[in-house]
Amino acid sequence: MAVIELEDIEKQYVVRTRAGLFRRERQIVQAVSAVNLQVNKGEMVAYVGPNGAGKSSTIKMITGILQPDGGRIQVLGMEPMRQRVQLTRKLGVVFGTRSQLWIDLPLQDSFALLRHLYRVEETRFKRNLDELVDRLDLSTFLDRPVRQLSLGQRMRGELAAAFLHDPDLVVLDEPTVGLDVVAKYAVRSFLADINREYGTTVLLTTHDLDDVEQLCERLVIIDEGRVVLDGSLGDFKARFGFERIVVVDLEAAVEPLEIDGVDVVERNGPRQHLRFDRRERSATDVLAAVAAQHSIRDVSIAEPTIEELIHRFYLE
């Protein structure tokens, strides 16, 4: 069953810029063009793309708070814009940069209010809350005012708040932004567990490749308002992730290394960033070539970030 169905969705913004004291210029920004997307029940989909690609706009249209200029949307069998309030009962939403918690009150006060807001039956609410407190490890700060929580703690609180009413669909807009490695791990494993155990459909946007890697089978890439790829992360990397970067720290700062099939993309004192295609050369092979010319102090190998891959992908 399709939980989200987008057909040829379009969105333009009219931006007025000042062009002189009294003159204003009207400019049209095409934020989303002809987006088609179908997400089925139980799927966990990463919606990624560079800044300004149209991710948040798409999410706003899916959740019924932004009117598309064209196309058809169905979410959980409803028309989001027309049935917004009805839809919110089955929807959980998390923003990395916004909060639905009462900042001056203890965390548990916000939770208790959600029971009344979503009219969750008392025993079920208690069961859900206990489970969420346990999974997200909230017990130590449940009675602390939200404003005193660290970002990671608050984010765990936000997640719990979004899941308390057993939503059928959860939409997360950059839920891991600004979190440290430990907090990111907590968020990811929570989402993965819930999705696996309850079959909750999850759509998330992120700029963190690790989120995608650890969470989502399916990757949808949007750039300049268009879906440019819809498939698995594995496919994507197999098709476009040929590139490797080796960072070498040499004994001394030297001229850019000259090795066949290798580009020096960055040079910083004794440190050089070498780029090559892993289909043509292996990393050991490249290192051996460097070692033949200079002595190496340290080495690291980097995979390109998703942002770089997308950029590359789009340029091709």
Partner: peptide
Amino acid sequence: SGDVVIDLYRPAG
């Protein structure tokens, strides 16, 4: 600030 989205995702007037 755009935080009104939080208000709009609430099943309450």
